[in-house]
Design a protein around this nucleic acid. Structure first.
Lengths: 345, 345
DNA sequence: TGTAAATATTTAAACCTTTAACTAACGTAC
DNA sequence: GTACGTTAGTTAAAGGTTTAAATATTTACA
């Protein structure tokens, strides 16, 4: 069903139908009503392609994900979708499968830059209003994506001040976790970090150090280990920490997998959690609620990040002057569960 | 950059440019080369909207999800995307948030039918070639989605023979799990089911019964409990099973959450897994690898389901006569881990 | 009743592409 | 030298919408 057909039935011109459907006051109430009725009966839906072609505005947001299967991606998309729904946008999706490809050669940028931009072109062919790039978090992706369309980065970052980014506050929440442990009497707090080169890992590390400093606790580097984000490496790192003479009374692992590895290590060493060792994870994944003891963790505002990313795209398109800041940093929340207790030493 | 501009630069007509770019032999090699060069330099990309408008084929697959945050949705989409990529399709996404809405009133169909179809219209406005409906698995959604576009259901089902569906074999894998337990000497095998009305739960239950039957083990209904898919209810169901006089030596929980609840219940009762109790879950989620003991489970072919759904849409659009069956049922695989042992009774 | 102003409706172009139909130029064969 | 076929290119319409500009109709008022 097209405007043309409706026009024919109503006995008016195409333009009149278009005006009527767009609720223009150029059309008399009587005719408008008649047309609306016919359109409703015929279940008329405008052809978005034609609309987009004519108006130039597609009301379309393109999502470019590095890894659609990544835990948080779906929630971010859900947030995007929520905004899209409220504001009549559509969403097109493209997955770069970056994670799959860079597994081994993490540094080889040029290699997948082409890939990403090819996906981007694909998206751009639909004349999206803007792009939301959902990253995989660890790397600085400056200069990877090339387009003059508005692009908003979320769950990743670039080092450019002019890029739009929706982030969360790694440092602050790591500070808060550490500080809470300190308030519970812990002074020997182990940290299991992500990879050395990971920016978020380093930000969290910073929060950890700041909390120690504010409480006049000297940083003990033998309490800081690297776990590469994995369960196994987390286990190994925790083992190293726990086998030390003067072992930590609390361990803060910078993701849940490594925290679970820590729980396993503690069990192996016959150390009771939380009585003899407090453990905190990061990401607040489902697993926190099904291990024993329940794992305290940090919950990320992922859905909100998605929502705000979409809003940012919208704002850039409609009222760029109204944008106060190109970077939005959201707070996380610490979720306390059974894996943390007062220090008994 | 449009055809028009390229035509101007090349000093030929728009049509010639179009033919050249589509590699038609209506254009001389010399001119073709020249045009291609100009287009490449200008980084010309055809406007997909205009192409779609003109040709009628959008090369667009619409995805309608009931719950984008559901564990498997992302993997299914990833599979869809894989096919899309290989075959030059685009993907548009729409989330009905069904799960959110029906939380309380599961039966009230009309209520969200409108919702879903509204989302569908939205998608249809882009003139997708077909729709993939990714369900939430439990309910029969016959007659909910109304469209004459090709629609393929996956991770859900209808009771109509004429609908296209990509499923996995619940019965067969439940049979296999049960049979493996029997082969390990277990004869008292508890089952923790999903909700009574759940079709997949019932299919799995069927597999369980068939395995027992084939080994001449009578069905003992006091070994069959309902756990509503949740950790807590799984825990309760397991408690009921384990407190019985003649308690099971193995428990097959029909999802991982309930299996984890079972592990917790066993711990609570001081029953050692797997020495005194074997436990098997279903879904093979991440959690299986981080609990102790590692949980045996059933892995679903989700990515492949997505891939085949997309392929099905493609096939319906391009060669409907080539489709042998409107239903494809894929096998699952049982993943053996440490939570299962030989029966010691 | 006549005219200006306001209101209602239509025409036609534009967005960018594809493609059927047409034209022009050239070569070949008789 | 005419007729025909081929090749290489152009013209124009179509797809469904929006919207500025033009036209038609009604209303208001002298």
């Amino acid at each position: 069903m097209t405007l043309k057909e409706i026009a024919k039935i109503a006995g008016v011109s195409i333009a009149t139908v278009s005006y009527a459907l767009n609720d223009s006051d150029k059309v008399s109430e009587a005719v408008k009503e008649k047309i609306l009725k016919i359109a409703a009966e015929a279940n008329y839906k405008p052809d978005k392609r034609a609309q987009a072609l004519r108006t130039g505005r597609a009301k379309l947001i393109g999502i470019l994900t590095e890894d659609i299967s990544f835990v948080f991606t779906a929630s971010i998309i859900r947030g995007i979708y929520k905004f899209a729904e409220e504001n009549n946008y559509h969403v097109v999706l493209s997955d770069t499968r970056l994670k799959e490809k860079v597994g081994k050669h993490y540094e080889d940028t040029a290699k997948y830059k082409d890939d990403i931009n090819q996906k981007l072109e694909f998206l751009l062919g639909y004349h999206v209003d803007g792009i939301i790039y959902i990253g995989s978090h660890d790397r600085d992706i400056s200069g990877i994506v090339e387009t003059d369309k508005p692009i908003v980065y979320t769950y990743c970052f670039t080092d450019s001040d002019s890029d739009y980014m929706i982030l969360y506050d790694n440092t602050k929440c790591a500070y808060e976790v550490t500080d809470r442990l300190i308030k519970k009497g812990h002074r020997k707090i182990g940290l299991i970090r992500g990879p050395e080169a990971s920016f978020p890992s380093n930000e969290r590390f910073m929060g950890y150090q700041m909390a120690l400093m504010d409480s006049r606790i000297p940083l003990n580097l033998s309490y800081v280990k690297t776990g590469e984000w994995s369960f196994e490496r987390g286990y190994e790192a925790a083992m190293e920490l726990l086998k030390q003479e003067d072992r930590p009374t609390a361990i803060f692992a910078l993701n849940d997998y490594m925290a679970l590895g820590t729980l396993e290590a503690a069990e192996k060493c016959g150390i009771k959690v939380p009585e003899e060792l407090s453990v905190v994870g990061f990401d607040n994944t489902d697993m926190c609620n099904v291990v024993r003891p329940r794992l305290s963790s940090v919950s990320l505002p992922v859905e909100e990040m998605g929502y705000l990313s979409a809003k940012m795209v919208h704002d850039i398109c409609t009222c760029p002057e109204g944008i106060k800041s190109r970077k939005i940093t959201l707070p996380c929340s610490v979720v306390a569960r059974g894996s943390v207790a007062e220090c008994r030493e």
